[in-house]
Simulated scan of single mutants.
Amino acid sequence: MKTGRALTREERTITWQAASLLLGYPDDRLLALRPLLRRAAAELPDATGGPLGRFLDHLDATPPAALAADYVATFDHRKRCCLYLTYYAYGDTRERGKALLRFKTAYREAGLDLDDGELPDHLSVVLEFAATADPEAGHRLLTGHRAGLELLRLALTEARSPWSAVLQAVSATLPPLSGDDHEAVRRLAAEGPPEEEVGTQTYGGPVLLPEPRVRTAAGLSPGARA
């Protein structure tokens, strides 16, 4: 791995593409990509390649059934580890719909199509978009939800989840937290996301959301830049 310098644009997009895959459900397709992802991580600077490599070590050392069970327990049953970015800022309130529309608009402007039944703010989807479709628009979406990403990273770290390494790599591609972001992280950690007065669950309870599928985005394949 390379050391001592900032990421190039290409390294940033490779990091996003690898992280997008590694934050998906650990099925046979993902496990088959491990050698390719390992080569990609080896070519990245330590700030992103190191964490990605550590997570790949975990994939290699853990039985597939255990990986799948841990993924469900981590991301489907813990709101603090929710992979849907707008949840942190808007919770289950009506305002979240407006935020989701901004993601859909960005995808549409880049020529991508997302099924109506899928939510566009899943972190894997956003990273895939940023890596393969429109890096600048994707970067804006990620930095616009910087506080939520940091809270997710902290929650995974506190839970000693191996996926915290993937969030560490993603964070290394983004600007440092500003003063306002620090305050937002503090508030979210203390209070949780906003909630409607009726019909919502308490913070920390289960949240069951659909798996994302961006039909037009290209995956990291053997012929990609890695």
Rank of each mutant, 00 (worst) to 15 (best):
A65F: 11
V166G: 02
A159F: 05
D121I: 07
T143D: 06
T157H: 14
R153W: 05
G144R: 08
Q168D: 12
W163T: 05
K104S: 13
C82E: 10
E118V: 15
A73F: 06
D92Q: 07
H58T: 08
P135H: 10
D76Q: 07
A159L: 10
L112R: 13
G117A: 12
A61M: 10
E136G: 09
P135M: 03
D116M: 02
R153S: 00
Y107C: 08
H145V: 03
T93D: 06
C82Q: 03
E150N: 10
V125A: 15
D70V: 07
A65N: 14
R153D: 00
D121A: 08
D115T: 08
A147W: 00
S164E: 03
D115P: 09
R80W: 04
A106T: 04
E118L: 14
A68C: 12
T105K: 15
R146G: 07
A73Q: 08
V166Y: 04
T74M: 10
Y90F: 15
L85W: 01
A66M: 09
L83D: 00
D60C: 13
G111D: 14
P63F: 11
P162K: 01
D134T: 00
P162I: 00
Y90M: 08
T132E: 09
R160K: 10
C81T: 01
A147P: 02
A66C: 11
T74C: 11
A165E: 04
R160A: 14
L123N: 01
A89E: 13
F75V: 07
S124D: 09
H77C: 08
L151E: 01
L85H: 05
L123K: 07
Y84K: 00
R102P: 10
A66P: 06
L101D: 11
A89T: 11
L151H: 01
Y71D: 09
A69I: 03
D134H: 07
E109C: 10
G144Y: 11
T62V: 12
R102S: 15
P120S: 08
R108N: 07
T74E: 11
G91N: 07
L142S: 02
D134A: 01
G138S: 13
L59N: 03
Y88H: 04
L141M: 07
L112V: 13
H139E: 11
L149R: 05
L152Y: 05
F75M: 04
L101Y: 07
G91M: 04
G144A: 03
L151C: 11
L85Q: 00
R96K: 11
T132R: 06
L141T: 09
F75W: 09
A106D: 08
G148R: 02
E118S: 14
H145R: 05
G148F: 03
V166N: 02
A137K: 12
L154E: 12
H58Y: 13
R80Q: 11
L59T: 14
G144T: 09
A66F: 13
R153K: 11
D134F: 04
Y88V: 05
A131W: 14
S161W: 00
C82W: 02
L119W: 06
G91D: 04
G97D: 12
R153A: 14
V166D: 00
Y88R: 03
A68V: 10
A69S: 12
P162W: 00
A130Y: 12
E118N: 13
L142W: 01
H77K: 06
T62W: 10
R108G: 07
D115F: 10
D76W: 08
L142Y: 02
L152R: 06
E118M: 15
V166A: 02
H122E: 13
